[in-house]
Design a binder for these strands. Structure first.
Length: 465
RNA sequence: GGCGGCGUAGCCAAGUGGUAAGGCAGAGGACUGCAAAUUCUCCAUCCCCGGUUCGAAUCCGGGCGCCGCCUCCA
């Protein structure tokens, strides 16, 4: 039985979807004013694993991720550069989707954009106004949290505590109460705006997620995710708005991932520990190693990224890929052999443990240990030469089954240029003639090009890096 | 100040009452022309102090240390 840790009550609960066999999933997406950083991708990877595992478990998932394409920083940049907000965000939207592909993140069913859902947001404001949740001040519309009795249900932040915080900053917009949040922001001079019944302005950030999730998933849906920093105030405010409108329970399961740290500290540009996916790739890290590093840690634990930990993840990932390669070679060899009962038992155990651990709030670290245990035991059996092609095929199917969720076993295009191909041939000839000096010379040369050679009984095998 | 989380081997990281998964790194052995890959062996008593219990990394209390949120930052 699948269980999730629900932020709302801080407990693990069995997952019961609203509709049998289906799962509605909303995940807070990027603000597209810059390249997403690796911390953002931790959240998207966690959500990808969640979505993949739900599908693995037979759920039909409707996954919606928003693109925040209008907010203060975007508007500021547009004003500074003289471009439209759409011109400012377009390149980063493209980059975002490229990065998703790089990390083998499955596409959501919908990527609604804030700018295309202004009407839905206005409609919510209208309803909230009619129900007495809002007030207007200087052209902006605010949500009065006092009117929503359950405010604080998700985060545990009690309204009366918010004010005691030392860092309340409300100088930009005047509110009745610093704890209230804005639904509609009056435009300032030179800013992008929409002409509406509430005046010229733009939507507040929290509103878009409520409007779009309700539009695509309904007033009630199963799962809503984001990074831990979204718990308060963003998701707390979403609940207030959404439930204020509908009068119904908005979301049944709130899942949040902890932050990714770099060298033990929160990423920030000023500390110089700020990485985009692209900058890590430039340092030579393999995208699948980055993916494995992130998904093989538990999503509710802080994750500390260091160059060493990425390197270690690469080694671990290589172990998986080396084994997979070995299995594929065995399949291709067309060897007949009686079925290995031991291997069958290990395969069954691997899948059983994998499911058991993933069912337990997506315990990917333990799920991966089930995989590694299998790889070790299977390698041992393969060493004995006792596995036939047919059973190797079954082993490959098991790996693929696991990878439906992990998504780390994406292979590189297996292309070698002619020069490298010739060098490998030349080295094989040299080895035959026992000219090991030349053979080693070539191996070192190729290593310098990032190509690693392994001499196996079946012949030479190569891989990158 | 308020809310929440964490502290397990050199590093990463599971494990929430019965005598510590897994990965990386390291040492040694097997295999190999040498490597690589693979495999075998070795490598912790769980921040500190009390308490509960037949029994605690796991529960309770108190410390110490670290982190996040309370700013439209996943």
């Amino acid at each position: 039985m699948l269980h999730f840790h629900n932020t709302e009550n801080n407990r693990k609960e069995p997952f019961k979807p609203l509709v049998e066999g289906k799962a509605g999933l909303y995940t807070c997406g990027p603000t597209v004013y810059d390249y997403a950083h690796i911390g953002n991708f931790r959240a998207y990877l966690f959500e990808d694993v969640l979505r993949r595992y739900l599908e693995f478990r037979g759920y039909e998932v409707n996954h919606v991720m928003n693109l925040t394409d209008v907010e203060d920083k975007i508007i500021r940049r547009a004003r500074e550069t003289g471009k439209t907000i759409y011109e400012c965000t377009a390149p980063y939207i493209d980059a975002f989707f490229e990065d998703l592909d790089t990390l083998n993140i499955k596409r959501a069913n919908q990527y609604p954009r804030a700018t295309e859902h202004i009407e839905e947001m206005l409609s919510m404001i209208r309803t909230l106004r009619d129900k007495g949740f809002t007030y207007e001040k200087d052209g902006s519309i605010y949500f009065r949290i006092r009117e929503f009795k359950e405010y604080g249900r998700l985060s545990g932040v009690r309204p009366e505590d918010v004010l005691s915080g030392a860092r309340i900053d409300s100088d930009e917009y005047e509110k009745d109460d610093a704890r209230d949040f804005v639904l509609w922001k009056a435009k300032k001079e030179g800013e992008h705006f929409w002409e509406t019944e509430f005046g010229e302005g733009r939507p507040g950030w929290h509103l878009e997620c409520s409007a779009m999730s309700i539009k695509y998933l309904g007033e009630q849906f199963d799962i809503h995710c984001g990074g831990e920093d979204n718990i308060f105030p963003h998701h707390e405010n979403e609940i207030a708005q959404s439930e204020g409108c509908s009068g119904k329970k908005f979301v049944n399961y709130w899942l949040h991932c902890r932050h990714l740290l770099v060298d033990g500290e929160k990423m920030s540009k000023s500390k110089g520990n700020f990485f985009t996916l692209r900058s890590l790739l430039d340092k030579g890290f393999h995208p699948m190693a980055i993916r494995f590093f992130i998904i093989s840690n538990h999503y509710r634990s802080p994750l500390n990224l260091t160059m060493d930990s990425l390197q270690a993840a690469h080694s671990a990932w290589s172990r998986i890929m080396d084994f997979r390669q070995r299995v594929k070679e065995r399949i291709a060899s067309n060897v007949e052999a009686p079925k290995q009962i031991d291997l069958q038992r290990e395969m069954d155990a691997c899948l059983t443990r994998f499911i058991e651990h993933m069912d337990d709030d997506l315990d990917t670290p333990r799920a991966s240990s089930a995989l590694f245990d299998f790889i070790r035991d299977a390698n041992k059996i393969f060493d004995s030469e006792a596995v036939g092609s047919k059973q190797a095929q079954e082993a490959l199917e098991l790996l693929d089954r696991v990878d439906e969720t992990f998504g780390v076993m994406k292979e590189d295009e297996a292309l070698l240029d002619d020069e490298v191909d010739q060098l490998i041939q030349e080295r094989q000839d040299a080895r035959k003639n026992r000219n090991f000096a030349r053979a080693d010379e070539i191996r070192d040369l190729l290593a310098g090009k990032g190509i690693i050679l392994e001499d196996t009984r079946e012949g030479v095998r190569w891989k990158r890096r």
